[in-house]
Amino acid sequence: MEVIFILIGCSLLVALLFLGLFFWSVRNGQYDDPHTPAIRILFDNKKSDTENNTTNPPKNTND
């Protein structure tokens, strides 16, 4: 039964990873605007070259 110590440790690590991802997404502004990305994902336009050169990091992540 001692294997539970390891399993619990692993599960906690995984959970902490997700908590960290959640923190990252909130700080990244993904919870600031819950509406526009839902619309934006429907545009099937080609990715333009200019967008790839962006040095100013885009706030939204799904286009």
Binding site: H35, T36, E51, N56, P58, N60
Partner: peptide
């Protein structure tokens, strides 16, 4: 062409 990026916050 000077515009690099524009994004809308609809709400």
């Amino acid at each position: 062409s000077g515009i690099i990026k524009s994004s809308v916050n609809f709400l």
